[in-house]
């Protein structure tokens, strides 16, 4: 397969990094050519240098492709081993075009 699409990620937990530096994690339900995505049961992981990662429940989201930088396939096993409350980092920078 030479396609760089998201077909093989449908139904899988993904982590989206948006152009403004946010990180949204949820189940990929659908996508299109423009990288618009439908995320079910999603939450935002808010990074800060002062406290651990905070999780905000969002629900069902459609994210517009123009605002997406990276779509990562979350390894659920790896992810469950991470204690997000102990992780502290500056939020990602917004994308400077």
């Amino acid at each position: 397969m030479s396609e760089a699409g998201l077909a093989d990620l449908v139904g899988v937990t993904i982590s989206v990094i948006t152009n403004d530096g946010r990180n949204i994690v949820g189940t990929l339900k659908g996508y299109d050519q423009a990288t618009n995505v439908i995320l079910d049961d999603c939450h935002e992981r808010v990074y800060s240098t002062k406290t651990g990662v905070e999780q905000l429940v969002l629900g069902l989201y459609v994210i517009r492709g123009d605002n997406i930088a990276v779509v990562g396939e979350v390894d659920d096993e790896l992810d469950s081993q991470i204690d997000l409350g102990q992780i502290s980092a500056a939020p990602l920078k917004p994308l400077a075009h």
Binding site: S15, N19, Y47, A69, V70, G72, D79, A89
Partner: peptide, 25 residues
């Protein structure tokens, strides 16, 4: 088989091993 360069500073993708990067970014 992705890994982020300087993972200390950027732990945001710690549980990601495969990713799609938008060309425009």
């Amino acid at each position: 088989n992705t890994r982020v360069v300087n993972e200390q500073k950027y732990p945001h993708m710690m549980s990601v091993r495969n990713c799609f990067i938008r060309g425009s970014v």
